[in-house]
């Protein structure tokens, strides 16, 4: 396999696998937040910002995977 092709494959696999965990995690966060809003719609003003922050933190591992694949592609 040529180096260039291996790089492309590696970058794709890195971000693809790295996005699985945060995808599941953010889905859980969103579903729980929506459940909570469904039970208590008055509290949506408090729940939604916290949901975004926690989703952003759950996203970190996907960000690391993105960094790795960007380094492979362009670095």
């Amino acid at each position: 396999m040529e180096l260039e092709a291996a790089k492309m494959l590696g970058a794709g696999i890195a971000i693809g696998l790295g996005a699985i965990g945060p995808g599941i995690g953010e889905g859980i966060a969103a579903s729980k937040a929506l459940e909570a809003i469904g039970r208590n719609p008055e509290a949506s003003g408090k729940i939604v910002p916290l949901m975004f922050v926690s989703m952003a933190i759950a996203e970190s591992t996907a960000i690391y995977a993105l960094v790795i694949s960007l380094i492979i592609l362009f670095g």
Partner: peptide, 17 residues
């Protein structure tokens, strides 16, 4: 140290992507 990477690449990665 990871704070630097995650905080900056979160914004950069989202907008760049």
């Amino acid at each position: 140290l990871a704070k630097i990477v995650s905080l900056s690449f979160r914004l950069f990665g989202n907008i760049f992507a």
